[in-house]
Design a protein around this nucleic acid. Structure first.
Lengths: 244, 244
DNA sequence: CGGTAGTTTGAACCACTTCAATATTCGTGG
DNA sequence: CCACGAATATTGAAGTGGTTCAAACTACCG
């Protein structure tokens, strides 16, 4: 397959310059190339389970996945959305405390965890890039706590849509503040990410649609006619990129 | 001063084996020793401000501080509690997105940020330790999202007290499941950490006291007669150490 | 001891949840 | 290509946990 072929070489990888390998030179890339392997996960399928031994760490190449924790009584919280170039796993630890589940079909670039730990020790460029990414993720997770702890339902939904618009949105060629994207999550998953019920999440999406903050097509397509307006709804003052 | 004297040498540092320098050998420690400086922050005083240039990174040596974000209308969320050995700052970035404020008198072991970035490049043991700590902090922040997103007020307060008991608690020499600690935060700050109002936080503390889950002395002293009981209240199944 | 910041408690209110019914989307097979 | 059906989403109405507003209390510092 042509597509699989180009994926097999790091040089042609679509996330080459954003993933954990971003800082690598040709030699280092060759070293990673030797130990990497690809895996394709079906939509809805588990990638890792909390508390179960983790043989691999991985980078999302295409698709979307979520990190989630579920309490014994079934309450679920999604604590992170993993998109292309995001890193999944915990070097130097056997387990993680959350489940990782594919939302769409996900292609992973995987490394055996032990082998990756060796790479981290021997390849400063990989270690430095992973540290930088992890610091960013930590800042994003902390920024997100204000959404979960302090924002009203409408603000939460707005903040979530804004974060997705920033990462997934395609600007209108004629009107750059107008962006379009496809929601990779169901209403239930959105609710689980925002600490709301699915009914409240749905109602707030409807309210935002009524008020002209968003337009929707089908279940998944979202158009944001004016990003600035959505930013105001989300109480977002800065111009950076957030999302846990 | 005798105390200042012992603080000046890394060898006698109380957090030598838990901080970012934990993996360092004598040579590396000497290098850090050359660029470090101590700072003492008064209770309530700011350590860093969001969006303002950060000249330093630092490790908390003694005392407690919080990371917080405040929305324009005054709503505040505390996204992290910094205790001795915790690392504050963002290498390779000029600003952070949250305020850092001392709760008690805080002693910091500071490094000029640029100098620390050089250390990170030249001293794999420091980089590796910081990566490991940051990965732990990220897991803790993600674990904490289930508290903010899905837990009821009583569970939130319980989870918070449990996290503090684990990090700050002194076990009773005769009854190890009985632990005592001093709250480094006011009720208002507890509420800001948990996404509640101070009234609700206070009411839940009172309820836990009435139900015998905790005992209190004065404003700050908390006794947990049975950690297991508190764990149940906090919906906590595992035995690890959490807290954002 | 007196003053004040911090805490506790009370009562009314409201945003979100819960429970329930209807509607839409979209894949599949006729 | 359309009709069917299951999954997903929307909307409605009543209930409730946490907030808000208000007042009293208490710990701790000088």
């Amino acid at each position: 397959m042509a597509i699989a072929k180009t994926r097999d070489t790091c040089a042609g990888c679509p996330i080459r310059h954003r993933a954990v390998c971003a800082y690598c030179d040709a030699d280092e890339l060759a070293m990673l190339e030797r130990i990497k392997s690809y895996a394709t996960i079906a939509p809805g399928a588990p990638i890792f389970f909390a508390r179960e031994p983790m043989r691999h760490v991985a980078t999302v190449v295409t698709g979307a996945a979520v990190l989630s924790r579920t309490l014994e009584d079934g309450r679920r919280q999604i604590s992170g959305l993993m998109l292309p170039s995001d890193f999944i796993g915990r070097p130097w630890r056997d387990t993680i405390s959350y489940d990782v589940t594919a939302l769409s079909e996900v292609v992973l670039c995987r490394f055996d965890r032990k082998a990756f730990e060796t790479i981290l020790r021997d390849t400063p460029h990989v270690a430095e890039r992973l540290l930088s990414m992890t610091l960013d993720d930590l800042d994003a997770a902390r920024d997100w706590s204000v959404v979960l702890g302090r924002m009203a339902a409408r603000e939460r939904v707005s903040a979530f849509l804004l974060a997705l618009a920033r990462r997934l949105g395609t600007p209108d060629p004629k009107v750059p503040e107008r962006v379009t994207f496809d929601l990779p999550l169901t209403r239930e998953a959105i609710a689980d990410a925002l600490g709301l019920t699915l009914e409240t999440a749905s109602r707030q999406m409807s309210a935002l649609r009524r008020d002209g903050v968003i337009e929707t097509e089908g279940r998944t397509r979202v158009v944001v006619p004016d990003l600035l307006r959505l930013q105001e709804e989300a109480q977002d003052d800065d111009d950076g990129g957030e999302l846990g």
